[in-house]
C-alpha cells in the first residue's frame, strides 16, 4: 500500500510538474475575471433584480458573490471544463507512449493494470482539484466585486431550477454541486483516458472524447431525440444543477450519478483491456 501511494504520488508529481497541466487553471482564472467585469459593468444586475423582485424577493440580498459564482460556472462547465479534462485525459497515456517514457516505465516489473490504475487515479485527483479550484476561485473573485449574501439560482433550460438560499445554506449547496461537477469532470477525463489507452496520438484521444461529448450535446438538443435524451451523457451532466432544486429530485440525481459512475468504470475497464492487449512499440 505504501509503495502504491508512493507511485501515485509520483504520477501526481509528473502530472502537476508539467506546465500544460495548468492551462485549464489559467484559462478559468482569465475567464472568470472577464465575466466578473461583464457582470459588474453591464445591465445584468438590473435584469436579475427585476426577476427576483417579480417573484417577491429582495434583489440586493441575492445579487451576491455566490449568485455570480454559480452564474459564472455555467459557461465554464459547458465549454472549458470538458476541454481541459479531455486534454489531460488524452495526454495521460498517449503522451507518454508518444514521447517514449512509457517504454522506460514498462522496462520495470510493474504490471500494466497497476500502471493504468495509478494514472487513472492521478487523473481523478486532477479533476477534483480542477473543479475545486474552479469553485473556490469563482467565489473568491466574485467576492472582490460583489457582497456576501444569499444565493439565487435560476436555470430556465432543460433542468428548470429556481432556487433561493441564505448565504451559508447556499454555500453548502454550492459545495454539493461541486462534488457532482467533479464526477462530471472525472467522466470527461475518463472518456479521453479510454482513447488514450489505445495506440493513438494524444491529440486524437482528446478530439475523439470531445467529439463524443459534443455529439451527445447535439443529439440531446434535437427535438426528435427528446424520448432518447437520457441516453446522452450531457443530460446526466446536469445533475449539479438539480442540487439547487427545491425539493431536490433525488431519483433523477441518483440515476444520473449512477450512470456517470457506470460510464466511468466502463471506460476505465475498456481502456485497461485495450492497454493490456496492445504492443508498446515506437
Amino acid at each position: 500500500m505504501n509503495l502504491f501511494l508512493r507511485q501515485l504520488g509520483n504520477e501526481l508529481w509528473k502530472l502537476f510538474g508539467k506546465k500544460r497541466t495548468y492551462i485549464g487553471f489559467g484559462t478559468f482564472l482569465v475567464a472568470q475575471n472577464a465575466m466578473l467585469l461583464a457582470f459588474h459593468f453591464s445591465d445584468w444586475q438590473q435584469g436579475t433584480a427585476r426577476l427576483l423582485e417579480g417573484n417577491g424577493y429582495l434583489a440586493e440580498e441575492f445579487i451576491s458573490a455566490l449568485t455570480v459564482a454559480v452564474l459564472m460556472l455555467i459557461p465554464q462547465i459547458i465549454l472549458l471544463m470538458p476541454l481541459y479534462a479531455c486534454l489531460v485525459g488524452g495526454d495521460m497515456v498517449a503522451k507518454e507512449s508518444e514521447e517514449g517514457t512509457l517504454r522506460m516505465i514498462l522496462c520495470r516489473p510493474i504490471s500494466r493494470v497497476r500502471l493504468l490504475t495509478l494514472k487513472w487515479l492521478a487523473g481523478m485527483v486532477f479533476c477534483v482539484v480542477l473543479v475545486a479550484s474552479l469553485g473556490v476561485m469563482a467565489v473568491l473573485f466574485a467576492r472582490l466585486w460583489f457582497p456576501w449574501g444569499g444565493l439565487f439560482v435560476f436555470a430556465p433550460g432543460p433542468v428548470r431550477v429556481f432556487g433561493i438560499f441564505t448565504g451559508w445554506e447556499g454555500l453548502a449547496y454550492y459545495g454539493a454541486s461541486h462534488l457532482i461537477l467533479a464526477i462530471n469532470a472525472c467522466t470527461m477525463f475518463g472518456l479521453a483516458f479510454l482513447f488514450s489507452s489505445f495506440n493513438m496520438k494524444p491529440a486524437a484521444a482528446t478530439i475523439l472524447a470531445l467529439s463524443f461529448l459534443l455529439l451527445n450535446l447535439v443529439m440531446e438538443a434535437m427535438p426528435f431525440f427528446e424520448e432518447y435524451k437520457e441516453l446522452c451523457l450531457t443530460h446526466h451532466f446536469r445533475g449539479w444543477l438539480l442540487v439547487f432544486q427545491t425539493p431536490v429530485d433525488w431519483l433523477r440525481l441518483g440515476q444520473s450519478l449512477g450512470i456517470l459512475l457506470g460510464v466511468n468504470l466502463t471506460a476505465f475497464l475498456v481502456g485497461l483491456a485495450g492497454f493490456h492487449c496492445r504492443d508498446i512499440k515506437s
Partner: peptide
Amino acid sequence: FETPVFYDYLSGYRNLEILSHYTGP
C-alpha cells in the same frame, strides 16, 4: 530500450526516483 527518454521538466535525481519506484522501494 530504444532511445532513452525522461521527463525533461524534472531533475535527473527525481527522474530516477520516479522510475525506481516502479520496481520497488
